[in-house]
Amino acid sequence: MSHDYVPVQWNRQKYFYDAILLAAVFIFLVIFIVAGTKTEAGNMMILMIRSFGACAIVLLHLVLAIGPLARLSDRFKPLLYNRRHFGVITALIGLVHAGLALMMYHGMGVINPIASAIGGYGNYGTLIEFPFESLGLIALIILLIMAATSHDFWLSRLSPPVWKGLHMSVYLAYAALIGHVALGTAQFDKSNGLFWGLAVGAVLISGLHISALLKGRRLDTQADINTTWVNIGDPMSIPLNKALTITPQNGERIAIFRHAKGISAVDAVCSHQNGPLGEGCIIGGLVTCPWHGFQFDPETGEAPAPFTDKVQTHAVKIENGNVWVNAEPDPFGTTRIAIQVPS
């Protein structure tokens, strides 16, 4: 391990998740098309356009749900580690949907198909006649940029803040896709099923994000501005071999771990690629980053030899049965022996 870019290798688990994901996508498309041919004598091309579009929007809902679900329950963390693959598949399915739609509706004329889709019909001044395909194009461009830059190399090359900022535009893509469907296909859906489906999806996604935010606020303690020592409370409130994360004012997040030797605190940001150390766990006595498995000794903040990565430690004390952590980080390499939890 080092501060330089280190490619993360594929493993059996990632292949397994990808195989399940691709199989689920295939089954979704087949069921959609078979059901479509039975319920309406539609054109096969139109059915394929709709099936890929429906698949893309369902996948995008899953992509957006994975983050808050993983914060609400550890059971969803394996999905979080493979979320980028969901995103890439979503963009590719969306690309197929757009390609088929351009061929079907805009590929036969003399006008450039993209120009025809975004300006060849309708009126941007009204909702009813709004050229909804332009919203789909905006969403597709964002999803393609995200998929193309999902490789860890880009995270390292662009720097984590820039990369994260770029990838937060997924919410803009989501809003554009909702508009694309609501102003497009949903206008012709007499049952209003699509409209209600979109509404339920939006409520679920918003609800999950709000729940995860509220849970994070409960766990995140704000430090008193007048002191560098923060009261964490009962030591047993920290899950064994896991961390409680706090956010001091004007400071980096701190992860307080309870492990076999006692209680230790380190910066909650992994020195490899800014991964959330506070969401990691103790494996083999070492703090393990959930993103790429980089490890650090909870007492020294140092990676095991021969690696040289370090995170800063924080002083911890127990007074009147409560755990206190110093919001001021120690210099790199400072050893802080874990504080024993009184029995």
Partner: peptide
Amino acid sequence: REALAGRGIIIRFMLLPGAILI
């Protein structure tokens, strides 16, 4: 000049779409 110098052709082509778009 990057840390990927000397790595295989597959990883380079995986990076091509990103380089085109950003």
